[in-house]
Amino acid sequence: MASKQVTLRIQPRADTEQGKVIRSLPSETTIALQSSGADLYQRLAAEADLSVHRLRITKGSDNASVPNAKDVTIDSTGIRDQSTIFVKDLGPQIAWRTVFVVEYLGPLLIHPLLYTLRPYLYAHAPRSASPLQTLSLLLICLHFLKREAETLFVHRFSLATMPARNIVKNSAHYWIFAGANIAYWTYAPAAPTAGPSNPLVTYPALALFVLGELGNLSTHLTLRNLRSTGGSERGIPKGLGFDLVTCPNYMFETMAWVGIWMVNWSLSTGVFVVIAVAQMAVWAKKKEGKYRREFGGAYQKKRFGMIPGLF
């Protein structure tokens, strides 16, 4: 039996920041109720001669978003015959994978550069870096190289793109705070890293770093396996750390950065850790709420979002 066809009325909506209206959209379109949201996006993108990722479709009845997803039917969104939909041009987009690669590239470029230029950047700087300065460089570069590898080979993104104009804002956190700020103070001749190391501190710090990085990788692999390639399906994550907190990836991320901080004892590193932990705590709280809404009683509620006993 053929799926019922419905006619949708189309209203272009201006972007409040860019003021663009899609002039080439038709006034209406016909689509089957059992077609997917992705089908509707593809059809309108072809009509508008724009990338499908530039479009946002919302229902005229309640302004709810129509997902660009293969597993969501037009019927399930509540759209009916003669419904009005609004179509908005989000402007030039950039892939989230590219965004992450650019973000993490900053520290990978800045730290080796400032480490190499130490004798020319600082007055009375010795020609050779101290063992702790070299160790700090190694740990930070390993951390962000792992991030880059995960971005390219592990992560599966629920959203394909974001507005291209936001990449500078998104990258500033890593390029400035994790890159230039930490690097400048870590490789200075008067930095704590310029002095001798204390094995009673350095070795536990290294252990914490390794455990944090491996645990973080484990949780990312668990999250990756919840979604098929190109899919938008969601599942309840289980495995290492997930019985303790909502987001063990953030818990292990914190462990790794505390390990780095224990190696260099730089105030700039401490500031970055505090900012990062505060942001991850906000994300963990939102993730807990999302799990409860999506899975209801099937989801085991967590008391703590990312650090057991704290928050």
Rank of each mutant, 00 (worst) to 15 (best):
A2G: 10
K4P: 00
R9I: 13
R13C: 09
D15F: 02
Q18W: 15
K20N: 11
K20G: 06
V21M: 10
S24G: 12
P26Y: 06
P26I: 10
S36N: 06
S36W: 05
Q42L: 06
Q42D: 11
E47T: 11
D49K: 15
L50A: 06
S51G: 04
H53C: 10
D62W: 01
T73G: 08
Q82S: 15
S83E: 05
F86I: 13
K88L: 12
L90F: 02
A95W: 08
W96A: 08
R97F: 11
T98N: 04
T98M: 11
V101L: 14
P107F: 06
L108N: 00
L109E: 13
I110A: 01
L117F: 11
R118D: 06
P126N: 07
A129G: 06
A129I: 07
A129E: 09
S130L: 05
L132E: 14
L132C: 08
L142S: 11
H143Q: 07
K146C: 04
R147Q: 00
R147Y: 02
V154P: 05
S158L: 13
P163S: 07
R165E: 01
R165S: 07
I167L: 13
K169I: 10
Y174E: 04
F177C: 12
N181G: 04
A183Y: 13
A188P: 01
A190Y: 14
A194L: 14
P199A: 13
V210D: 08
L211R: 05
H220T: 01
R227Q: 02
S228A: 15
G230N: 13
G230H: 02
S232T: 15
G235F: 02
G235I: 02
P237R: 05
K238D: 08
L240W: 09
G241N: 01
G241S: 02
G241C: 02
L244K: 02
L244Q: 02
Y250L: 01
F252E: 08
F252L: 05
V263C: 08
N264Q: 10
A278D: 11
M280R: 07
M280L: 12
K286Y: 14
E288C: 00
E288N: 03
K290L: 13
Q300G: 04
R303Y: 11
F304N: 05
G305E: 15
G305N: 15
P308D: 08
